[in-house]
Design a protein around this nucleic acid. Structure first.
Lengths: 345, 345
DNA sequence: TCACCAAATGTAACCGCTTACTTTTTTATC
DNA sequence: GATAAAAAAGTAAGCGGTTACATTTGGTGA
C-alpha cells in the first residue's frame, strides 16, 4: 500500500551505474562524467529519490541536527531566540530539535540524557540553573565527545563553553540611573533567581547605580523573584505594603514586569502616576498599546543567530579551545517616561 | 582527545556476551538470563553507554522524531501549540524537530522537502495556505509513504488528513452577536487571509451574525487582512476614515488585534470609549494589564496535545483510513466589556 | 598502434544497531 | 542418565548510505 522510499541501489540500477557513482553525484564529492551524471539525475527524478539522512549520518557519523534547549517556549524572549537559531540553522542546512525544560532542573537532566541518544551535531542551551552540578557534568560530557555546546543568556560554572549574552549589568545600571536622576530615592528591584547570571548581573547593575548615587542599599527593597509572573506579583504586593514603599521599581525581566503590573492593578496603582516602573526586555504588546513603559531592550533574534554562528564555528575547527568565546551584545535603553517621577507623588 | 561514544560491540566485549544479548537487554525485547543482564548493565554503566538512536532508526526504519511546521514561532498561539506538542511528544519518547515557514509558501515547500530527507515518524503542520497545490502534493506524498500528517488550525483541500481545529465560526458568531446585542449597527471585521479555513470560518461567523440580526453586509466593512499586524493596522485606519466608520470591529486573530490597537492609538481612539473591539485569541499581556478586551478564546496547548495524540494513533494502526478524523475544540467567549456600546457615542 | 596516466567507475568494508535464524545451554521428564 | 523441549545466547545479514581502494576507460604522445 504505502510505497517505500527508493534507495540508492534502485537509483543505481535504474541509471545503470554503481551506487558509488550515485553517491558521488548526490554529494558532488568527486568528478563524474556528464553522461553518468545525467543518467543518475534522470533516475533520481523518475523515482523521486531523496537520500536518507539517517543513513548518511550513521555512515559519516555526522548529524545534521542541532539541539536547542529552552526553559520556556512561551516567553517571547526565548521564542525570538528560537527564531534566530532556526533561521541561522536553516542557512547552514541544519535542522533544529527542540527541547523544553519548563524551568525545571529535573526535566533538564532528562532532556539532556535523551539528547545523548540522538547524536546531535551541537547544542544550544539556556540552562535552568547555573549551579546544577549534574547539568554541568552532562554538558561537559557533550563537549568531551566532540559535541559543542553554546550557552545563551545564562551561564554555568565553567568558562570553557562558548556563550552569547547581553550586557545586562550595563543596561540595568543605566536604567536605574535614569530613575535616580528623575529624583527617585526609594528604588526597589524584583530580581531574577540569583543563581543565574542574568539575575545576578541585573542586580549588580542596580546596586552599582545606587552606590554611584550614594544611596544605601536597603535589603527590603531587594526582592528575589524567579523570572515568573506569580512570584513577582507577590513580591511587588509586599513591596508596596512596606511602611516606606518604594517610589520606583526595576523589574528584572518581561515575566516579572507582568507580575509587577498585575500587582499594581490589584492595588489600583497606575504606572507613571502613582509609581515608576522600569522593565527588562521590551514587551511588544505594551508597545502596541502605547503603554509608556521604559525598558532595557536587547536583540534576542540576533542572540539566537550568534549562538548558531558560534556553534557552526565549532564544527569547523578540529580540537576545542581551553576557554570559550563570549559574545556580549549591547542592550538598549528605551525611555518611554515610566522612569520619571510619578505625577501624584 | 575527544573520547568516542562506546558502541554495542564494546559493551558486548566488556560484558563477555554477544551484541545480540546487549541489544536484547537494552530493548527488553527477548528474555535474557539474570546473569547476563547484570553483566550487560554493569558494562553499560562502566562505559557510560547510550545507544545510538540514528543506528537504531536506520536498522528498524522507525524514526523517533516528529516534525512540526509552524508559520510563526513568535505568535503565542503557535508557541502554545508547540508547547502542547512537545509535552505530549515527550511523554511518548519522541523528539520534536521544529520548522518555521514564516507564513511563506516558498519556505514551506523548501521545509517540506528537507523534511523528506529526515525520515520523520510523522508530521504536524499548520500550512501557510489551504490551496497551495504543491504543499498538498508533498503532504500527500508523506502519507503515501506511511508518514502520517496532522493538520492544526488550518486545513488543506483534502479530507483525507487528520486535523484538529477550533470551532471558529461558532465563536465569532457569538462574539459578533454580543456586539450587535449591545446595540451596534455598524460592525466591521478585519479578516484573516480568506484562503485559509480560520480566515474563512471567522468571516462566516461574522456574516451569519449580521444576517441573523437582519443587518445587511457592507463590503467596505469587510477588510481582508493577513493575520499580520501591519496590514491590520492599515485596514483599521482605512475603516476609521470611512464616511460612515464602524462603531465596532471584530479582529480575526491576536496579531490583527495588535494592528487594530495600533491604529486606534494613532487615531487617538480608546477602546470602550470611542470604539468597540472584539478579538480572536486571548492576549496574556492585555489580561495582565487589565485591558478590558473581549475575546474569543481557545486552548492552543490542548490543540497541540490533541494533534500529537492523533499522530500517535496513526503510528499504531497499520493502514490509513480514507477519511481523516477531525477534532473540533470549542471556543470560549470571554466578555470583558469591550463589546459594549462605547461611552462617547 | 601501443604504452602511460589521469579520469571515471566499481567493489566492498564499514557506520551501530536489530532480528531472523542457528546453535548451545538449561530444565524437565521418564 | 538419556532425551525432548524450552530458554538463552550467538551468528550474520541487513538498514541506506560513504569512501578507501581497485579496476576500467579514454585520451595523449611517440
Amino acid at each position: 500500500m504505502s510505497k517505500q522510499e527508493a534507495n540508492i541501489y534502485e537509483i543505481a540500477k535504474e541509471a545503470g551505474v554503481s551506487i558509488a557513482t550515485v553517491s558521488r553525484v548526490m554529494n558532488r564529492s568527486a568528478s563524474v562524467s556528464e553522461k553518468s551524471t545525467k543518467k543518475v539525475m534522470d533516475a533520481v527524478r523518475k523515482l523521486n529519490y531523496v537520500p536518507n539522512s539517517t543513513a548518511r549520518s550513521l555512515s559519516t557519523s555526522l548529524s545534521r541536527s542541532i539541539g536547542i534547549v529552552v526553559p520556556d517556549i512561551n516567553n517571547p524572549f526565548f521564542s525570538k531566540i528560537l527564531q534566530g537559531v532556526t533561521a541561522a540553522a536553516d542557512e547552514q542546512g541544519l535542522q533544529v530539535v527542540l527541547y523544553s525544560t519548563d524551568e525545571d532542573t529535573e526535566r533538564e537532566l532528562k532532556v539532556l540524557h535523551t539528547m545523548r541518544e540522538h547524536r546531535l551535531r551541537g547544542i544550544i542551551i539556556t540552562p535552568v540553573s547555573e549551579h546544577c552540578k549534574e547539568t554541568l557534568d552532562l554538558l561537559q560530557d557533550f563537549e568531551l565527545r566532540g559535541i559543542p555546546v553554546v550557552l545563551v543568556d545564562r551561564e554555568v560554572d565553567d568558562p570553557h563553553f562558548d556563550r552569547v549574552v547581553a550586557q545586562d549589568e550595563d543596561g540595568v545600571y543605566q536604567a536605574v540611573c535614569s530613575m535616580l536622576q528623575a529624583g527617585h530615592k526609594r528604588v526597589a528591584i524584583v530580581t531574577g533567581p540569583l543563581h543565574s547570571r542574568p539575575g545576578k548581573e541585573r542586580l549588580r547593575g542596580y546596586e552599582r547605580a545606587l552606590e554611584d548615587f550614594g544611596i544605601p542599599l536597603r535589603q527590603e527593597y531587594i526582592r528575589q523573584g524567579d523570572f515568573r509572573m506569580e512570584r513577582a506579583c507577590e513580591e511587588t504586593l509586599e513591596l508596596c505594603s512596606l511602611e516606606e514603599p518604594p517610589t520606583a521599581i526595576f523589574s528584572s525581566n518581561n515575566m516579572t514586569t507582568y507580575g509587577c503590573l498585575k500587582a499594581f492593578l490589584e492595588l489600583g496603582l497606575t504606572v507613571g502616576r502613582d509609581i515608576s516602573l522600569f522593565g527588562f526586555d521590551d514587551i511588544d504588546a505594551l508597545k502596541w498599546l502605547n503603554y509608556k513603559l521604559s525598558v532595557v531592550s536587547r536583540d534576542a533574534y540576533e542572540m539566537g543567530r550568534r549562538a548558531m554562528g558560534l556553534l557552526a564555528d565549532c564544527f569547523d575547527r578540529e580540537g576545542f579551545s581551553e576557554v570559550g568565546r563570549r559574545e556580549s551584545l549591547p542592550t538598549e535603553l528605551i525611555l518611554r517616561g515610566s522612569e520619571q517621577w510619578p505625577e501624584s507623588l
